[in-house]
Structure formats: structure tokens, C-alpha cells
Computed example of a mutant assay.
Amino acid sequence: MRKRGFEIVSKYQDSNLHLPQRQTPASAGYDFEAAEDVVIPSIWRFNFVRIFRLIRNFHELNEHDYRVAEQILKPFLVPTGIKCYMPEDEVLILANRSSNTYKRNVTLPNGIGVIDSDYYNNQNNEGEIYFQLINYGVRPLKIKKGERIGQGIFIPYLRADNDNPVPQKRTGGFGSSGVKDELNGKDKD
């Protein structure tokens, strides 16, 4: 009986991807690789600096400034082509590699990623795992297919005595388990 592990999602079945693996017997994390070549531009190349100057100099931002900033200042999603399965009382924590920040100037803006057991085979994207990355270096970061971009660690978790989760089915990722905002019908995180 399968307990926990990794699979390649359908759209990458013929792409010669490697399943995540630990690099040493004492490693806690399974290294994930990029499923395709990706270039992550430096945040310093965006209108980020202009928005920062406006804020720093106490200028009033208009709606256009906010929209531009919200479109630009987002992390890049790097596909892995991998999905994972695990028992219901476990979670896969996605973490940055130590060499990413020290040598490559790239970080996970969310600190860690959380892959819940019900993310596996969801109807939106089959449960494909992506790493959110921001390049704070001055040069664009070129990631080649097969380069290690992060790691995943399986961890059991505990539930509260009065645990009563909302009875809903996950349909996708990145906020898909959010509760609907009554005012505008959008997901809240």
C-alpha cells in the first residue's frame, strides 16, 4: 500500500523529469527540480523602484499606480511537473535551498509553501507543485530544466480537540481553500 511519494503530472509524462530525491541518507528534504527553463527577472528591473520612490516621498498613489504595482510585484511560479500523495494527517513543506539565497539571490516570498494532502489530483491542475520565487539580485536568474530549485519535507501534523474543518472540496492551489468573501465573491486567504 502506498503511503507517501511523488508522481509526474500528465502534461510532463514525456519530459524526462526526475522525481524529487534526498541527496544524502541524513537529508530531510527531497530536492525538486525545475520542469522547464525559466528566467526570473530582477525585481529592480520593474516599476518597483518608481512605486517605492512615490511611497518614500509621501506622494499620493492613484488607482493606476496600485494596479501596476500589483501586477508587477508578484513572485514567479516555477513548475516542477511533480505532484505528491501522503496520508491525510501529513503535509509537504516546501522550503528554499540554502544556496538559493546565498549564491543566487532568490527567495521564497511566502517563507515556506504548504502542500496539503487534498491538493493531490485536484481538478484544477492535477496537484502540480510550483515554487514561488523572487529574484532580488540585479541580474536576471536563468534556471535550466533539471536544476534544483527547492526542497520538500513531509511532516505529520496534529489537530485540535475541537477540530471542525469547513466541509468543502479543494479545486486548485494558491488560496483554493480560502473562504469566500461575502462582499465581492473572491477567495480570502
Rank of each mutant, 00 (worst) to 15 (best):
A69P: 05
E36Q: 15
E36G: 01
K142D: 12
E182N: 14
N122C: 09
G150R: 04
Q23Y: 08
E36V: 12
I153M: 04
V9N: 03
K103F: 11
R45K: 15
L77K: 04
D118Q: 02
H59W: 04
G146L: 05
A28F: 12
P165N: 02
P165V: 03
I43W: 10
E182Q: 15
P20I: 00
K186G: 07
K11F: 04
G113Y: 09
I134K: 07
F174Y: 12
Y130S: 09
D189W: 14
M86G: 01
K142A: 13
M1T: 14
D161S: 09
F52V: 06
G146E: 01
N162F: 13
N122L: 03
G175T: 03
I82F: 02
A34M: 01
Y85I: 01
L54M: 15
R159I: 08
E7G: 01
V49G: 07
P109F: 12
E70D: 01
H59F: 10
L61K: 11
N47F: 10
F174I: 05
R104L: 02
W44I: 09
K188L: 12
Y12I: 03
G172N: 09
G5L: 01
T107W: 11
A26M: 11
N162H: 14
V114A: 02
N62I: 01
S98P: 03
L92I: 08
L92A: 12
C84S: 08
N122G: 05
D116R: 08
Y12D: 06
E63Y: 03
N164R: 13
S117W: 13
T171A: 07
R148H: 14
G29M: 04
S176F: 05
N62H: 05
F154A: 06
L19P: 06
Q23M: 11
V38C: 11
N184S: 03
P156A: 09
I55G: 04
G111A: 14
I153E: 00
G178W: 01
P109D: 04
P109A: 07
I129H: 08
V38Q: 11
R56T: 08
V91C: 02
Q71K: 12
E70A: 13
E90M: 10
E90C: 14
L94T: 10
K144D: 00
E182W: 12
N124Y: 10
F48M: 12
N105I: 00
P165T: 00
I8F: 09
I129L: 06
T80G: 07
F48S: 08
P25I: 09
K169E: 10
E147P: 02
M86Q: 13
I43S: 06
T101N: 15
Y85N: 07
T80N: 08
V91Y: 00
V38N: 07
Q168K: 13
D163H: 15
V114S: 02
H59N: 14
G172R: 05
G178V: 00
F32K: 06
V78Q: 04
F58K: 15
F48A: 14
T80C: 04
